[in-house]
Amino acid sequence: MELYVFDGTLEGLLTAVFDCYQRKSGAVKIVSQENFHPDVFQESFTVVSADEKANRVWAGLRKKLDKDWMLRFYKSFLSENQETFHDLLEFSRYILDNPAGAGENFGNKHVLAISQMAQKVHREKHRMEAFIRFQQTADGIFYAHIEPDFNVLPLISDHFKNRYADQKWIIYDLKRKYGLYFDLEKVEEVVFDFTTEMSPALNALPETLLDPKEELYSLLWKDYFRSTNIPARKNMKLHIRHIPKRYWKYLSEKQA
């Protein structure tokens, strides 16, 4: 068993696939740099990300997989999960070694693992599309921050760009410390140094930074959320299954 160490990027992972073939490796275990703990008894091979190698692997996969599968591949990569990195490596080798159509073999554990992880990431993407709550700031920008389980910002960018085409907005991922900013033309990645008044410890922006109308609408939203509930049907178990508690922090309607 060879241990491959890669830099955690998609290029790195694809380069690793290329290296497997070039080095004629047998069984391989892959781990990202940040999770690599050197061990005197185990030799390791450090993958050096190379665009050219990565592109060749990507092109090879595209010949064998349809568009949906390529998207699944990318989504499961965004899970940032160590086991999934390994599944992706093995999946790629399996696909490249077999005729087109092998992606349908859900009896293969890597095929199944990738498709299930892609589903999980997709669910998180969908949750963010649902649970993001913008606040309108005094300078007219609609701002929200989030802490998604997976790195889903790249997946939700288009959704918000198409939907909120006539307003400026920022979505900031506090866990991964970067955000998206839409300036009415294009979406850009941004990184902030938070000032004290805009502390990420708060689950929403303080009133001083907000548009004067913001208070009214967040109040009306909370009122609406309460009025549309039917107490005779109360079912907290179902409620929590749909909105797990970890998401409550940033949902304005769940704040007292």
């Binding site: 509930n229 049907r233 109360k234 907290m236 409620h239 299954r241 749909h242 909105i243 309607e253």
Partner: peptide, 13 residues
């Protein structure tokens, strides 16, 4: 479609 929230009776908003 997107369910943006759920009421305490478990219905989608």
């Amino acid at each position: 479609g997107i369910c943006h929230s759920y009421t305490e009776d478990g219905r989608c908003v």
